[in-house]
Structure formats: C-alpha cells, structure tokens
Amino acid sequence: MFDPNAVPEEKRGNAGVALRVLLGVLFLLPGACGGLFYVAALFEWISGGFRFRGPDNFTGAFVILAAPSILLSTILIGLLLRYASWRRAPQASLVLAIVSAVVILLSVLMLYDEMGINAPDDIIVTILVIAVAIGVSVVPPFLHWRSKR
C-alpha cells in the first residue's frame, strides 16, 4: 500500500548512526585518558623488573585511578555494541572482554606488588574485588559474543 507521508529509503537520515559514533567517542575518552596513565605505570613497573622503584613512588596511585577509567570505557562501549546493528559487534565485544581481563590481571599484579598484600584477609578482599570486576566488565561482553556465535 502506498503511503504519501512515507520518507523514501534514500532520504532517511543517519542520525542514529551519528549518535552512536558520538557516544562511542565520548565513552572512549575516560579509557583513553586512563590508558595513558596505565601505560606509563605499566612501563615503570616492567622497567623496574616487575617492581615499582622507591618507597615514595606514586605509580600505584596511577594504576588505582587508570584501571577503573579503562574498565568504565569498556563497559560503556560494550553496552553500545550490545545494541549496535553492526555485523562485527560480537567480535568487538570479545575484544573488549579480553582487554578488560588483561587490565584486571595486570592491575592486580601491579597493586599486589605496590601494596604488599600478604595477610589472609587482604587476599580474600582482593579475590572478591577481582570477582566483582570480572563479573561486571568481562562477563557481559563475552556473553554477547557467545550468544551471537
């Protein structure tokens, strides 16, 4: 049936795509800023023989601030990909899950070295924090990839 008020296919705007791109860029900003600090802290940790140098080193603080900002970006981008109509969104979600897992693992290793966690109570709290971080940032993108595979 002919609808005289219908907008032809070629004249529809790409506002939805533009909005997703804009949101993607905005969601990447905290991760990019955190990534700069994170790479600096990671370089400092690796160049020091997988140890931070000196007692008054503030590199651990960079890790504490950078890791959550990177994970926030991966969560937000993961939500954006979940509802994207892009054909490769599930593969991008898998990459986000891997990035999140690597960031969590390296952060725990760096902070373990920085804080000297060795009491049983500290280890239990650390394991709980790791479990929550993995549950929030790694599992949803992985499940998106798994369900679309």
Rank of each mutant, 00 (worst) to 15 (best):
R51G: 11
E9T: 06
V138H: 04
L143M: 11
V103C: 06
L109Y: 00
G35N: 08
D121R: 12
T74H: 01
F43S: 10
G78V: 03
M110P: 07
L71D: 07
F2S: 13
L96C: 06
L96K: 04
I123K: 12
N5S: 11
M110G: 11
A41F: 07
I46F: 10
S85A: 09
A32M: 10
P90I: 03
G13I: 05
V21C: 05
A92Q: 09
R20F: 07
R53Q: 15
A119S: 14
I117G: 01
E9L: 07
F62H: 14
F2Y: 13
I127M: 15
L105E: 12
R82F: 10
I104P: 08
E114G: 00
R12F: 00
I46P: 04
V139C: 00
R149I: 04
A101E: 14
T59C: 01
M110S: 06
I98A: 13
G35T: 07
F37M: 12
I134F: 10
G48Y: 05
G54E: 06
V25F: 06
Y112C: 03
V129P: 01
F52E: 09
I127E: 12
L128D: 12
S73A: 10
V102F: 05
S147D: 15
P68K: 08
N14R: 11
D56I: 09
D56F: 14
G24N: 01
V103W: 09
L42V: 09
V7T: 10
V125W: 06
V136A: 14
A133K: 04
I124A: 15
G34H: 04
A66P: 09
V102C: 05
F142M: 04
